[in-house]
Simulated scan of single mutants.
Amino acid sequence: MLYIIFDILARALEIYSIGLIIYIFMSWFPGARESTFGSIMTKLYEPFLEPFRKIIPPLGMIDISPIVAIIVLRLAGAGIWGLYNMIVRFIAG
């Protein structure tokens, strides 16, 4: 049961990071973020990206904060499995 919970959490983070990559690529297409799908994606991903954009300034015309955000999501996914292994070892004795 515990494995299922952690697997769902890890998969949710993976799906969110894939959606974030799609949202980032939407900036390459004019008007994509102004569509209905784009506005939904904006509501989902801008609150997550905003703190990274405050910390990491753009390099000219390139915003690298989404790259850092994706790395943080991937590390969180790895952390979930690390936490799972710690709990299983603690329970096993």
Rank of each mutant, 00 (worst) to 15 (best):
L20G: 09
F37Y: 11
R89S: 15
L73C: 12
I8C: 11
I15Y: 11
Y23G: 00
I62Y: 02
I67V: 13
L75T: 07
R74I: 15
S17P: 02
I67W: 00
L83K: 03
R11D: 13
I62D: 04
R89C: 10
L2V: 15
Y84L: 10
I87C: 03
I15E: 05
S35M: 05
L20A: 00
L73N: 11
Y84S: 02
D7R: 12
F37C: 10
M26V: 04
I62C: 01
P57C: 00
A12F: 15
Y23I: 00
I22S: 07
I40Y: 10
P58Q: 02
V72C: 11
E50R: 11
P66E: 02
A78Y: 14
Y45N: 05
S35G: 07
L13Y: 04
I22P: 04
L49S: 00
E50C: 11
L49N: 07
S65W: 05
I4H: 13
R11G: 09
I64K: 05
L9H: 08
S39H: 13
S27H: 10
I40V: 15
G77F: 07
A76I: 08
N85G: 08
R53I: 09
P51V: 04
K54D: 08
Y3A: 13
S27E: 05
I80K: 01
I15T: 08
W28M: 03
I71H: 04
Y16I: 13
E46P: 03
A12D: 00
I62L: 08
L9T: 03
V72W: 05
L59Y: 15
M1R: 12
V88R: 06
F25R: 09
M1H: 10
P57A: 14
G19R: 01
S35E: 06
I71F: 12
I67P: 02
A32F: 02
Y16K: 06
A92C: 01
I62M: 03
A69I: 00
I80D: 00
I15D: 01
I56L: 13
G31Y: 06
G79N: 04
S39Y: 09
W28V: 06
F48G: 03
T42N: 08
T42W: 05
P47K: 02
P58G: 08
I4N: 13
V72K: 02
A78V: 09
L59Q: 11
M86T: 10
R89M: 13
I8N: 12
A32G: 00
I24R: 07
L75S: 08
I15C: 03
V88T: 09
G19Q: 03
A92P: 00
I64C: 07
I87S: 08
I4Q: 14
G93A: 07
I55T: 07
I71E: 06
I80N: 01
A10N: 12
S17A: 15
P66R: 06
R33W: 07
L20N: 02
L20M: 14
I64M: 12
L20T: 05
I64V: 13
T42P: 01
T36Y: 12
R74P: 07
S17V: 08
F29Y: 15
A78F: 15
E14A: 15
K54W: 10
M86F: 13
I67A: 12
F25A: 11
I18P: 01
M86D: 10
G38Y: 04
M61T: 14
A32N: 05
S17Q: 11
R74M: 12
E34W: 07
K54E: 01
L73V: 11
I18L: 14
Y3H: 14
P47D: 05
I91M: 10
I40H: 06
T36V: 14
G60L: 08
I15R: 05
